[in-house]
Simulated assay, not measured.
Amino acid sequence: MPPRASSSKTAITAGILAGLLAAALGAYYVYQPPSAGHATQDTAGAQPEDKAVNALLALPEIRAWSAHIEKASGGKSHGAVMETTPEQRLVDGQAYFQLSFFENGPDAAHRWESFLVTPDGKRILVEDMVEGDLLSLERWRKESAPMKRVPN
């Protein structure tokens, strides 16, 4: 019987596998925020999922995080929005797309935040990764200060 791997090796292996899974998801469905000098897509004829993604990409936090990731990595990593599950989630009778913002790097993708966005893009909730609660954008901004994640 071969010796059992140490718990630290198991944790490292699990982390690598999780990173590879996230990168695979990124290859399946990735939206990258537009550069600061480019206009956003016209959403008039867009599909509901595209409207939801574009609404998320328009958030100042997502734009700032993306710019920071790009600059700090020297262009090796990028901010990306990915659909984290294909099924819509019902909250108080309203359907939401489940999207997350990731730092998409050459070796792995790291999730920064998870969001629920209505198909029309008019309502965005933030999923508290610790408690599992859903927060309004206003509450999330007040309690989490997401703009402080990146230097000014």
Results as ranks from 00 to 15, higher is better:
82 M>H: 10
52 A>H: 07
100 S>H: 09
67 A>H: 04
133 D>Q: 14
61 E>I: 10
138 E>V: 03
133 D>G: 07
108 A>C: 08
71 K>T: 12
135 L>A: 03
65 W>K: 07
90 L>V: 10
134 L>S: 07
94 Q>C: 07
46 A>S: 13
79 G>T: 01
114 S>F: 06
135 L>S: 07
107 D>I: 07
111 R>N: 11
130 V>C: 00
140 W>V: 04
74 G>P: 08
93 G>T: 05
75 G>S: 01
111 R>C: 13
72 A>N: 14
123 R>A: 13
65 W>E: 08
55 A>G: 03
124 I>K: 10
68 H>F: 11
68 H>C: 06
91 V>E: 05
78 H>R: 15
83 E>W: 09
132 G>F: 01
91 V>M: 06
84 T>K: 13
100 S>M: 05
120 D>F: 04
104 N>P: 03
52 A>W: 00
40 T>V: 00
138 E>R: 02
68 H>E: 11
74 G>I: 08
131 E>D: 12
105 G>N: 09
75 G>Q: 02
95 A>G: 04
50 D>V: 00
131 E>S: 14
52 A>C: 05
74 G>K: 05
129 M>Q: 15
48 P>D: 04
37 G>L: 08
114 S>M: 14
105 G>L: 05
44 A>R: 14
85 T>E: 15
62 I>R: 10
48 P>K: 11
36 A>M: 06
62 I>K: 09
45 G>Y: 13
34 P>H: 11
90 L>P: 06
76 K>M: 00
81 V>D: 00
108 A>E: 07
78 H>K: 14
49 E>N: 06
60 P>Q: 12
36 A>Y: 08
117 V>P: 00
96 Y>V: 15
89 R>A: 10
86 P>L: 14
47 Q>K: 13
90 L>D: 12
103 E>M: 04
117 V>F: 05
79 G>F: 01
124 I>E: 03
34 P>V: 13
45 G>L: 09
49 E>R: 14
62 I>P: 00
107 D>C: 11
134 L>H: 15
59 L>E: 12
104 N>W: 11
130 V>N: 07
117 V>T: 03
79 G>E: 00
56 L>D: 02
56 L>N: 02
72 A>Y: 11
107 D>G: 09
47 Q>E: 05
107 D>T: 06
36 A>I: 08
121 G>S: 05
122 K>N: 12
107 D>R: 10
60 P>D: 14
66 S>M: 10
64 A>W: 08
